[in-house]
Nucleic acid binder design. Structure first.
Length: 485
RNA sequence: CGGGGUGUGGCGCAGUUGGCUAGCGCAUCUGCUUUGGGAGCAGAGGGUCCCGUGUUCGAGUCACGGUACCCCGACCA
């Protein structure tokens, strides 16, 4: 698995029925099973957003080119990867070669397919905001965006992807900065509590900052090959967009002020993170909180009479487990053998499997198998529904702990450049001193492909004097270096 | 856009110095036996060998051109 991690990942995504490549260049089809997991993520995140007062809204897919180019840094950041709509009509080719674009139907102003929605949203917020009483505005949208990537990988980088983007407007810089931090911590909590994935919360270096932001906060996760994956970002946009789109409000003293902005987002990339954080050689390992099916039941039988009796028993058990609030499926496909079903549901990462056969029927028992450790034991059927909750809870904790321990074993301090060059290639997060200059960061990237993933603000905070790992210049804190996806 | 590779039933592949009726595994369909860790046997269906041009008695195989996809770089959530 470690040797050919990329291939393992790709095969797993395909075999577990999460997604497949579409014939459309760089695009992906998310299959029903994969989408069900994404819906669980959406549900949990959406609930967390709403707890902070965020409301959902929807803004257009198309952005007029002129809107897009109002914020200079922002355009520069996205210009190279935009899909552009130039025409609005097709016609039959007069020379008989099928359908062509009607040259008469050229748009006066081209439309950009959103790579992110700051510009269209700020051109809208301008009309919503007049007074300090209108603030803050806390909106989120679930949508798709398009970034014309050269090379793509299922979930991790596709030309089109699904995400949520929150866009907020505030009266003061402090409020906006608080919002930026609040949301990055929502993401960190979601990663920990739902995805069972530990993350490092931190600040991006200027090089890695979002185009148009004054500050970018990030959650960085470690995959099982030791590479870093940026799993979510939250940006403090200052007054850049307010000034570009002329969004002002009248404060309590009657003065006109520009508003302060944030934006934050996570994408279907989280699906990739989930696969790479927990998967093993048998397939996917889903944290119970995100598993569309938490308990799968497989009947084992020889005769029709046994089959019927077992299915009756299972239907009864299913009701009892569902009453405890879990999702259960009975796999009663009769053409397939139990061993095949076992392997298939393991591949799909279902946390708990219950098998009942003639032997169990006679003894009043059930075989309980947990996906994370692959352990199985035969226990009394009576009252089993009560212990399922505890088992699911334990699986959730165990896979988090496993991912946590894995990361712990691969994070270390490093103060020697030669050592750095060697260790960074073996898939580690190295805590190193950095002189704070983009030049040094760029040189390190050029020589090793490693980048500063973040300057930690929660865990792994290392504020101590030292010397830059590369330049030797003075530094007052360590930052996280890693090779990333 | 630079470097490399591959196009052969639905999927994955083999096909020798050009040679006979283009094969194999998986999947599919039918039947019987099976079912506590990815079943066995018997039979069946399914191909413009990516496209075009050329060389040749003869091209899946050789040459030239085109095209599609994949991998490695630069770019990126």
């Amino acid at each position: 698995m470690a040797e050919n991690y990329s291939q393992w990942y790709n095969d797993l995504v395909l075999k577990a029925d999460l997604a497949e490549q579409s014939p459309v260049r760089g695009c992906m089809v998310i299959k029903p099973y994969g989408f069900a997991i994404w819906e669980k993520m959406q549900g949990a995140l959406d609930g967390m957003f709403k707890e902070t007062g965020v409301q959902n809204a929807y803004f257009p897919l198309f952005i007029p080119k002129s809107f897009f180019s109002r914020e200079a840094e922002h355009v520069a950041g996205f210009a190279k990867e935009c899909a552009v709509v130039t025409h609005h009509r097709l016609m039959n080719d007069p020379e008989g070669n099928g359908i062509i674009v009607d040259p008469e139907a050229k748009l006066e102003e081209e439309l950009i397919v959103r790579p992110t929605s700051e510009t269209i949203i700020w051109s809208t917020y301008k009309n919503w905001i007049k007074s300090w009483r209108d603030l803050p505005i806390l909106c989120n949208q679930w949508c798709n965006v398009v970034r014309w990537e050269m090379r793509t990988r299922l979930f991790l980088r596709t030309s089109e992807f699904l995400w949520q983007e929150g866009h907020t407007a505030h009266a003061t810089a402090q409020e906006a900065e608080e919002e930026t931090e609040r949301m990055v911590h929502v993401y960190a909590r979601f990663a920990r509590d739902h995805m069972a994935m530990p993350v490092i919360v931190g600040r991006k270096s200027p090089n890695e900052r979002f185009a148009g932001a004054l500050d970018t906060l990030t959650i960085e996760a470690m995959m099982q090959d030791g590479k870093a994956l940026q799993a979510g970002t939250s940006h403090f946009l200052g007054q850049n967009f307010a000034k570009s789109f002329d969004v002002k409000y009248t404060d309590q003293e009657g003065n006109l002020q520009y508003v302060w902005a944030t934006s934050w987002g996570v994408s279907t990339r989280l699906m990739g993170a989930l696969v790479m954080a927990h998967g093993d050689e048998h397939g996917l390992v889903l944290p119970p909180k995100l598993a569309p099916i938490q308990v799968i039941m497989v009947p084992i039988f020889k005769t029709d009479a046994e089959h019927a009796a077992i299915l009756d028993k299972m239907a009864e058990l299913k009701k009892a487990i569902e009453a405890e609030g879990h999702t259960v499926k009975i796999d009663d496909r009769d053409a397939l053998r139990p061993g095949f079903k076992f392997a298939e549901w393991e591949l799909k990462g279902v946390p708990v499997r219950l098998a009942i056969g003639p032997r169990d029927l006679k003894n009043g028992t059930v075989e309980v198998h947990r996906r994370d450790t692959l352990e199985k034991q035969t226990v009394a059927l009576e009252g089993i529904e009560k212990s399922i909750a505890a088992l699911l809870d334990d699986i959730q904790k165990t896979i988090y702990q496993k991912a946590f321990d894995f990361r712990e074993s691969r994070v270390e301090k490093c103060d020697d450049w030669d050592e750095f060059k060697e260790k960074i290639q073996t898939g580690k997060f190295l805590l190193c001193h950095w002189d704070g200059t983009p030049e040094t960061e760029q040189k390190i990237k050029d020589e090793t492909k490693a980048t500063i993933r973040c300057i930690p603000i929660d865990s792994f905070v290392c504020e101590e004097p030292g010397k830059d790992i590369y330049s030797g210049k003075p530094s007052d804190r360590r930052v996280v270096f890693a090779i990333s996806y």
